[in-house]
């Protein structure tokens, strides 16, 4: 009977190892050798962009926003204007955690830095998405902002009456809000990918 047990152990181990290598480690070693070549970006993130990226992770943006553009056969990502080319493994070499996402409750952000370069738009949108995008179901992030008086950095957000915290109050983005916007604006896929064809 013991031999049965050993057989089972090795069976369970073998199936595990096959998949561990097959769909985890082999892709890892294979893709790790993929590096941007020639003139191709992506550039590494700046300090500020990395701080913003941590805010992105902290607030769980990835649960509603993907960061990948698929080829035409897989969806209308490009017709929607989310990007001009499918994203490839080279685009993500600097990403940890990688934020590909699996849900599109909101639009894809792989190329948001090209599509929406306005700080003012991003800040208002983060303070309350319904200022810039009526009907949006994105959560507001008021804790990335402070009321004037509590905080001062010489920059206020010009909010419409209905969204202001109280009549006449000015809202000021915190460093975290600015970092997050810097990160979003760094998401650009407008460079060439070489070595693919």
């Amino acid at each position: 009977m013991m031999s049965r047990g050993i057989l089972m152990f090795f069976g369970v181990l073998a199936t595990y190892i096959s998949a561990l290598f097959g769909i985890n480690l082999i892709p890892k070693f294979m893709l790790e050798r993929v590096r941007p070549e020639g003139t191709m970006l992506p550039y590494a993130y700046t300090e500020q962009e990395l701080r913003g990226r941590r805010v992105y992770v902290r607030e769980g943006c990835v649960y509603c926003h993907s960061q990948q553009i698929r080829a035409k056969q897989n969806g209308s990502d490009m017709e929607r204007g989310w990007g001009q080319r499918p994203t490839v493994a080279q685009d993500y070499v600097h990403d940890s955690p990688v934020l590909l996402g699996t849900m599109r409750t909101g639009p894809d952000l792989a190329n948001i830095g090209v599509r929406q370069p306005s700080d003012d738009w991003h800040l208002k949108h983060l303070y309350n998405p319904r200022i810039t995008s009526p009907g949006s179901i994105m959560p507001p992030y008021p804790w990335l902002f402070m009321k004037q008086g509590e905080y001062d950095r010489g920059m206020t957000l010009d909010l419409p009456q209905e969204f202001a915290p109280e009549a006449g109050a000015q809202v000021i983005p915190t460093q975290e809000a600015l970092d997050l916007v810097a990160y979003l604006k760094s998401l650009k896929r407008n460079y060439k990918v070489e070595g693919l064809k």
């Binding site: 080829a71 035409k72 056969q73 490009m78 001009q84 080319r85 060439k192 990918v193 693919l196 064809k197």
Partner: peptide
């Protein structure tokens, strides 16, 4: 069996062009 082997159409569309369409 290659890292840059994407679904065929991806390559046809030439992930190469920065500003397609």
């Amino acid at each position: 069996f290659d890292a840059n082997s994407y679904d065929p159409v991806t390559i046809e569309e030439g992930a190469g062009s920065g500003n397609g369409a």
